[in-house]
Design a protein around this nucleic acid. Structure first.
Lengths: 197, 197, 197, 197
DNA sequence: GATGAATGAGTTTTCATTCAT
DNA sequence: TATGAATGAAAACTCATTCAT
């Protein structure tokens, strides 16, 4: 079996195990066994458990980023672009739910490499944020930043909801998200009446 | 030191360690040391690591729930109630950021007690969702469910953003969230133009 | 509660726990709790777990010895004396099955005090042996010693059998043992045909 | 060193430690050290301390049983068969005194697996009992059961006596045991005169 | 006299990681 | 290239024993 192929296989198995057990509870023994190779093999491909995890996160993150960036036709109207991107985003979640869970499931991994993971997550969040801003979100900072963040969280949550309701068609979910973002964008009169009534 | 006080101390320390390291990486040794007691003491207060974690989650969850339920004056207009509750929510996050991180940080906790944690989270999410629905969100199911979920995720994300921008006043962040929810509620015309234009 | 009474209470509870769990598995916590006193109380009465165990063994051993020595009427014919003693022995086993189990249940306790326990057991075994020899067992040494030992083992085993068949009357069991010993004593022609037939 | 050989080595060492210290007092640390391997090695061969103990007991029990069953020539007269079997029994005790002590030394093992050990012991005891009954022991039940039990205990005790008197030749000890059993078998007149005379 | 509170030392067990082949 | 065999380090948990009150 060619080297690259085996590497890919190990990564996929590792992703499944990390998604199911979390970083700490996942064991190299289990990964090696499920991949059908010996543990030293795993170590010859990836320097350490940490390295394996980071590599997986890195690749999953890169793929998601690329898909987000390449989604939609250039020059399309903003809302259409938003729809194309959120569609792509949901497609990724559907196809790579392991990758999705590993990327956004665990929050506080242990110290040494939490930063790298956080950075990857931040890049993805930024990409989503950019697509929201491209659609026309205009607030003065820092509200823009905060609200974009909130809408990214909304996308994540929606994706998780969808994973538990797989019967709902992708397009419908995407439509809901576009609705939400669009509403926020075109909302006529923020801020909202504060006192009451 | 009286027993109840020590118990509280250990819980707080444990919360900090769990928030920082995650359940698996946290060690009873570290918790004991940071609390200034010996490990057997911790075990005499809490039967096991799992028990300690669950107790912490349970108390934090209960407090957050109670605060959400008691927030605002009864009979206030919906948007005012929403504002009161999101304000309370953010206040909790600010005061108990450890509790917040433990409750909503790790996703895929280890198997044995994931259910209990998930249940607590679900109760909190439901409370937030209810407050959104009370404010007037009306979609036909399942969109209502999904969008409520998304807006809960938006609140979580906004809270995390705020933890990293502590200089922004609470009221302002609350206002942004109200704006978002309000916009979604009063949005005139979901669904949104799908094609483009 | 007077000191001596409490001491007796603790000893009895300890005996029950030792009999049930064995020396190592028995915990001072459990003994204290079952006796209804605090652990420091136990330590004020008995210097250590080892001390408690030894004291229990010592008393149980002493009582059994005394009962064996005082059994039967002086001057009775040998077989009657044997019957009286084995009856007393079985009565002890019946009344103090905890003591019996602790005395003869565990074989190889841990090093430091195994010798003391072995010594007590040896004294009891000697007493039984003497009663057998008194009944008329006559072999040249070392066969006498070995066979006496064997007959002591037979008594122990019979006692254990009886503990599991509590419905059988004591006298009957005693009768069987006397039969066995008597048969060995009066056996006309040891050694037995060795080759065959 | 080949795997099977190491396994055997560990088992032997474990047997020695269990025989010397008893199950609870024996530590995996000590077993590993005495076997010249690391603790994880022991765990890779045997799943747990309990597993190691049971495996040892099982093998020792099986060997003893097989030796008892295969002893003697088929069709030999009963007393000769008895002699052959008790000889084999004593030979086992002499060769595997660790196995002997572990099998029959501790009585009240800890709860979880006491049953399995008791079962093995019972099988061996039954084998011994059968060989006694084959030799001609005839009592009405339950006396037959009880007396057989007693004679098994006699054999155990005799074996223990012999372990402390290793200079006595095996044949002689076997002869004594045959004498005892033979005497009981041919005893003309149980029950014995009860009053005195 | 009595105890609640506390701990040092040890137990079994697991796991990431590395040689020798 | 590939692995069976091996381990150092650490984790959860327990228990006999002792203070401070």
């Amino acid at each position: 079996m060619p080297r690259a192929r085996r590497e890919q296989l190990i990564l996929e198995v590792a992703g499944a195990v990390f998604a199911r057990e979390g970083y700490h509870a996942a064991s190299m023994d289990e990964i090696a066994e499920q991949a059908g190779v010996s543990k030293p093999m795993v170590y010859s491909y990836f320097a350490s458990k940490e390295g394996l995890y980071l590599e997986y996160v890195e690749r999953a993150g890169r793929e998601l980023l690329e898909r987000l960036e390449n989604a939609g036709v250039p020059g399309a109207p903003p809302v259409a672009a938003l729809r194309a991107r959120i569609t792509e985003f949901l497609a990724f979640v559907q196809e790579h739910d392991d990758g999705w869970k590993v990327l956004f499931g665990e929050f506080a991994s242990s110290r040494p490499f939490a930063e790298r993971v956080a950075e990857i997550r931040a890049r993805i969040a930024n990409a989503i944020r950019r697509m929201i801003e491209d659609a026309g979100l205009r607030f003065p900072p820092p509200a823009s930043d905060a609200i974009a963040h909130a809408l990214v969280g909304a996308a994540e949550s929606l994706a998780n909801w969808w994973l538990e309701h797989p019967d709902v068609p992708l397009e419908e979910v995407a439509g809901w998200y576009v609705s939400v973002v669009h509403a926020v964008i075109v909302a006529p009169d923020h801020p909202v009446p504060s006192g009451g009534r």
